[in-house]
Amino acid sequence: RQNSPRTCQYVDLARLAHDSPFSVNEVEALYELFKKLSCSIIDDMLIHKEELRLALFQAPYGENIFLDRVFDLFDEKKNGVIEFEEFIHALSVFHPNAPIEEKIDFAFRLYDLRQTGFIEREEVQQMVATILMESDMTLSDELLNLIIDKTFADADSDKDGKISKAEWKAYVLKHPSLLKNMTLPYLKDVTTAFPSFIFNTEVED
């Protein structure tokens, strides 16, 4: 059997399932998704940044800071590619049943662009500028500053000009909709989304 989970020598499906909110069959179904994503440009069973971009934005080209951060957070080994185990680790955070602390932490690391341990005003400005460009939206500088001032007035409780992890936690617990992107409802029903895992499975959950 080509490309079945058992032929992937680096993967221990049972261990991955044990250490994540996924069952073995769900890990197998995610392997089907991983195979699809990891061979979309270079057929090497690794997700390259271009393949992540293609999956998320239907275009393999173009720089984007959010894409860079998502890729960096998935790429735990920092070797420029996402392996299956890293894929499962990161997607675990997005499971509807994952602890909210993990989602809060992931979102914080996502937005801490320079990885200083704080979300700084310049980072927020840069991210807002990126989303405006991405969506062809224009806002006056005055309104932009107002939005960022208001955000920091709410989130930066010690008024030091940057948002610490503790401040971020308090802020998102007050505004839980900010964690919406940290949950993928699809992950609750992944075996239905990728039924082809049935042809490769060796276990029945």
Partner: peptide, 29 residues
């Protein structure tokens, strides 16, 4: 009239609208 001030979207709501932060794209190809 109007002690109500208009609601201002917060910066992270805006940022969260990026397509690159919506990983459901994985499942929608």
């Amino acid at each position: 009239k109007g002690s109500d001030s208009p609601t201002i979207i917060n910066a992270f709501q805006l940022i969260g609208m990026s397509s690159f932060l919506d990983l459901s794209g994985f499942f929608e190809q």
